Every structure is written in C-alpha cells, then in structure tokens.
Computed example of a mutant assay.
Amino acid sequence: MDTADLLERSYPGRRAELKRDIFRKALSLFNEQGIEATTIEMIRAECDTSVGAIYHHFGNKEGLVAALFFTALEDQARLRDAYLDAAKTTEEGVQALVFSYVDWVEQQPQWARFQYHARFAVTKGPFKEELAERNKTRNLRLRQWLAESGRAAELQQLPAELLPSLIIGQADSYCRAWLAGRVKGSPTAYRGILAQAAWRSIRAEAPAGD
C-alpha cells in the first residue's frame, strides 16, 4: 500500500481529488520540513491551488495537521479491525493487534512518521477533545472484543486503560526506532516476537500444577 492507496480509501472519488492532492503534498512537506516550519503558503505552492481552497477544506494549518492525523488513525483502525475479526482466541486477538500495528507502519512509513511527529501537536492543540473521543471509540472496540466469550478471564486483572500500552508498547517502540533509522531489521520480521512479548505481559498466570 502506498500513500495514494490510503487516500483513495479514505477520500474516494473525483470530487475529493483536490483534497487528496493537498493531503499528499502537505504530508510530504510536514515530514521533510517539520510541522512547525511548514506554512500554508508552502503547501499552496506545491499544490498549485489557492490559500482559500486550503482554508475551505481544513480551516487552518492546525486543522490540516489534525485531518491528516485522524486520517492515519482511521486507516490504522480499519486494518486492526480486519485482523481482529479473523482472530478466534484471545491470544490470536493480541497477536492481531500487534501484527496490524506493525504491518501498517511498514506499509505506510510516511504516514506513520507523520503520526508520531504530529501526536503532540494534536494532543495539545484545538482538536485535543476530538482526539480524546476518537481514542475512546477505538479503545471501545478492543474492550468489546475482550468481553466476548469471557476472554477477560484469560488476562491478568489490569486497568483497561493500561491494556493498549502493554499490548502495543513494545511494537510502538521498535517501529519508532525503525522509522528513525536507529535499527535496520524490518518490523514485520520481528512481529511474531513482539506479539509473544505482548501476550506474556497480559495473560493470566496458569494455576500451579497446570
């Protein structure tokens, strides 16, 4: 999957062509120049459109950054849910969460790189409440899955808010290092090891003698 594929999935059709072009050019500039250094005028020049057209779609630069960030989150969630729907056991579900995260980062490195850089800006900016609501909705899907067929009984008694960090935390750390060029091994090459580590961190201990 490349950037164009992600944008076609998220904003299909000819009417969204300008929006996709703005997204594509803005994503490239934000990653190359940095979010703070990139201006609306720079994006306008790359898109060969008007500043008014950009403001019409996104309101301002903060709105464009948030729209890109939310687009990445939604695409990531689509892949996660597809993997999770195919899981039959609790362990396979945890594996699905790790696999989908790692696979998405490797398939979409430019989006993932932007997502990491933009998270602080969106968390502290005018769209922080919308981000909180979106995260709540995304985490609800995980809690609903765990509630099915008594899966929670297979896990340690842990705060629900801690589970995403325990499951994804190690994969997230490795993916960040890979995107930054600090490690060379492909994230997907280690996804099995990362999934095993995630499962060990949350599974309930078997009773003595089992």
Rank of each mutant, 00 (worst) to 15 (best):
E133P: 00
E133H: 10
R134E: 10
N135W: 07
N135K: 09
N135F: 07
K136M: 04
K136T: 06
K136N: 03
K136D: 04
T137R: 14
T137W: 13
T137K: 15
T137P: 01
T137V: 14
R138N: 13
N139Q: 15
N139L: 14
L140Q: 11
R141P: 00
R141T: 04
R141W: 02
L142Q: 07
R143I: 10
R143C: 04
R143S: 10
Q144E: 10
Q144R: 12
W145L: 01
W145I: 03
W145T: 01
W145A: 01
L146Q: 02
A147N: 08
A147W: 04
A147R: 09
A147T: 05
E148C: 01
E148F: 04
S149E: 14
G150H: 12
G150T: 10
G150C: 11
G150Q: 12
R151V: 07
R151W: 07
R151Y: 05
A153K: 14
A153C: 09
A153Y: 13
A153P: 04
E154N: 05
E154Q: 08
E154I: 02
E154D: 09
L155G: 06
L155F: 10
L155Y: 07
L155I: 06
L155M: 15
Q156T: 07
Q156C: 07
Q156P: 02
Q157I: 13
Q157D: 14
Q157Y: 11
Q157V: 14
Q157A: 15
Q157S: 14
L158Q: 07
L158G: 05
L158N: 03
L158H: 06
P159K: 13
P159R: 13
P159S: 10
P159H: 13
P159G: 12
A160L: 15
A160T: 15
A160H: 12
A160W: 13
E161R: 12
E161S: 13
E161I: 15
E161H: 14
L162A: 15
L162T: 14
L162P: 05
L162S: 13
L163C: 06
L163T: 05
P164H: 08
P164G: 04
P164Y: 04
P164N: 05
S165H: 13
S165F: 15
S165L: 11
S165I: 11
S165Y: 15
L166M: 11
L166V: 03
L166T: 04
I167N: 04
I168W: 02
I168G: 00
I168N: 03
I168D: 01
I168Y: 03
I168S: 02
G169H: 01
G169L: 00
G169V: 00
G169K: 00
Q170M: 03
Q170N: 07
Q170I: 01
A171Y: 00
A171M: 01
